[in-house]
């Protein structure tokens, strides 16, 4: 698979591989992400109107007519596109691409034009329609490494930026580059079936590099030319139901 900007070699270029054969749609990744990244809980009503705030979500697709139905799951999060459509349309540089292939969101800079959300074919950008709210039980468990976002701005999956930072810091302390497996985003860590793999695709020894170059790898909406950094491994014909 051709990797966008492969000539611009940086030490790190983060990527994620999701094995659809392993995903059983349990939703643990969603909870893991929500806890790690201080994603607010929006409540039933807003979820019903389509304002659910899940940086990663499990999309369910049902094939066939009852009783012969198959359900397929597709974990969906920000694809960290190399040619990200969301970035160029932001009038205030609130989202841009960093050297490590991450599509980053600058919360303080965002004014909430929501243009990025309109230009994202994956619909994985989330807007804070209200002041952030958290359940009583989780209010004292907010992650101090992640800022709580104000109302009126966009947010989205950051590939657990704070964990990448920490991983790099540790590696630097030990005077070595980041090893494969040093860094795990919350979703990958939580996934009971190990469907999510995260790593440095520029490290040719890494697991993601190997998986990406396997036969099952594909990317979503490849025809759009967005060059996502999230790769999916095709699921087989069998399914849970």
């Amino acid at each position: 698979m051709k990797i966008f900007n492969a000539d611009k070699q940086n030490d790190y270029k983060w990527a994620m591989v999701i094995d659809l054969d392993r995903c059983d749609g349990c939703g643990a990744c969603v909870i893991g992400c929500q806890t790690e990244n201080n994603v607010p809980t929006v409540g039933q009503d807003d979820v019903a109107t389509g304002r659910s705030m899940h940086w990663i979500r499990i999309e369910r697709y049902i094939e066939g007519e009852y009783p012969n139905v198959k359900v397929r799951f597709l974990p969906m999060m920000c694809q960290h596109c190399e040619a990200a459509p969301c970035e160029s349309v932001c009038p205030v540089y609130a989202t841009y691409h960093n050297d490590e292939g991450l599509n980053v969101q600058v919360y303080n800079r965002c004014i909430g034009t929501r243009f990025c959300g309109n230009n994202c074919p994956y619909s994985v950008r989330f807007f804070n329609w209200w002041d952030p709210s958290f359940d009583e039980a989780t209010r004292n468990q907010l992650n101090p490494d992640v800022s709580v976002r104000e109302r009126g701005i966009m947010e989205k999956c950051s590939f657990c930026m704070q964990r990448i930072r920490r991983g790099k810091d540790h590696a630097k302390d030990e005077g070595r580059p980041v090893k494969d497996g040093d860094i795990q985003p919350a979703c990958a860590q939580t996934c009971p079936t190990g469907a999510i793999t995260f790593g440095n695709i520029n490290d040719h020894e890494s697991k993601v590099h190997e998986m990406v170059h396997g036969k099952r790898a594909y990317r979503l909406f490849e025809e759009k030319g967005t060059h996502p950094s999230v790769y999916y491994l095709k699921g087989g014909a069998e399914n849970v139901f």
Partner: peptide, 15 residues
């Protein structure tokens, strides 16, 4: 004061 939630907008109808 309250937030854009008072509109009918939601993902992905951002406009």
């Amino acid at each position: 004061v309250v937030g854009m939630g008072v509109t009918g907008l939601h993902q992905p109808v951002f406009w």
